[in-house]
Write a protein that binds this DNA or RNA. Sequence first.
RNA 1: GGAGAGAUGGCUGAGUUGGUCGAAGGCGCUCGCCUGGAAAGCGAGUAGAUGGGGCAAAACCCUGUCUCGAGGGUUCGAAUCCCUCUCUCUCCGCCA
Length: 425
Amino acid sequence: MLDLKYVRENPDAVRRAMELKKEAGDLEGLLKMDQQRRDLLKEVEDLKQTRNRVSKEIGKQGADSEGAQQKKEEMRAVSTKIKELDDQLRQIDIKMEHLLLSLPNIPDEVVPIGTDEEDNIEVRAWGDKPKFDFEPLAHWDIGEKLHILDFPRAGKISGSRFAVYFAAGARLERALINFMLDLHTVKHDYCEVFPPFLVNSASMTGTGQLPKFAEDAFKVEGSDLYLVPTAEVPVTNLHRDEILDDEQLPLYYAAYTACFRAEAGAHGRDTRGLIRQHQFNKVELVKFVRPEDSDDELEKLTRNAEEVLKLLGLPYRVMLMCSGDLGFAPAKKYDLEVWLPAANTYREISSCSNFTDFQARRAGIRYRPEQGKKAQFVHTLNGSGVAVGRTVAAILENFQQEDGTVVIPEALRPYCGGMERITAT
RNA sequence: GGAGAGAUGGCUGAGUUGGUCGAAGGCGCUCGCCUGGAAAGCGAGUAGAUGGGGCAAAACCCUGUCUCGAGGGUUCGAAUCCCUCUCUCUCCGCCA
């Protein structure tokens, strides 16, 4: 959510952000309503002042005295008027809140102008793509041949876009979660969090999943609870409506959760394999930082996520999102894309964003820079560190051997009980 | 699921015959005195949000409105009375 005052004073910047991000929103309506609201507020506050003053007088002179009767009579009318105006004000507030929530964050000045992923810029690439003397298989074929992935049975017990992992597959998934958490908590100094997987609508609104993206989430029928689409939601909301101490900052959190996504509007895309599931595992990195540090913190966060892929030996590239591919809330975003040989393409495996104060304002997350000074909104950042299912896919495809086995990256072996290679069972 | 108790400022804790209560006291914190320095002691200050004015702006000052878990209601006036909801605690039942 943008600052209303900022919108009022910089309508052109907001208009430009909307164009760049291809977001529709009723800026003009908002500005008009804002003026209306201010006029109305002035009027009703004056009336309240009168009422407060006269009520105090009534108390002083005694409620039963002669003059008091007359004053009560007058104030009855004033109170009725106040109620009317307050009602109008409430209506306007609700509408304005809605309009304000539909305005996207202002892109950082370094964000390249562009319309879609074609215009994203490759910032750097790492690792050598593997060369095969045979036709590399897709990970779902490898997984089924090794009896570690089972999509038909997942379809039976749940439906499409689910997977069952068996044996070394399940072990690999679990090993990756532990490997990533250990890396980020021990080496990168994040605090491990294990949050609820169900969150209420206030939390979903705080991080921006609601109201705009309601159809992407799974809602528990007959309750106010949603399955978390990412750990970003519970972890960012940890500090919702809080004022943090300056010394607490920066706060780094690393959280493993399962993630649940309805994937509405993705019919026919990535229907096979682990790439696009209704349920997947992810280790998420979340930061709360001082505004002046958020630029550097995004770079560090991105490097932390890259470290996972480096240690696993997975080739990847880092993409700077252009304005058209940036999305609604981030001011700046890097995607990490891992190499998938079978598809002969890079696929997103992590997304690292700086939301500046956009989320913090919406979620009411502030800090006090100096004792006795005004509280300011923090800057929030988050990034996958990284998506586990897609990492399994990348490991299977990049480290597959001609004999059908898969070599487990060295860094992961301690987490797999020393297993060096996945063979068919 | 049943019965009961509660939710007040950074924390603790008064305030429940509706008016001088945005809120006592204590703790903590800040500043000052004291001290070689510290502790103790003494004195002063100390909730948040938002609007307007002093002003070009910051600091600062003056001032309006709102906020005592959330939302509604009664009343000239609500922390205080009524209703709904949320959360916390205790006991019982059930359960991994």
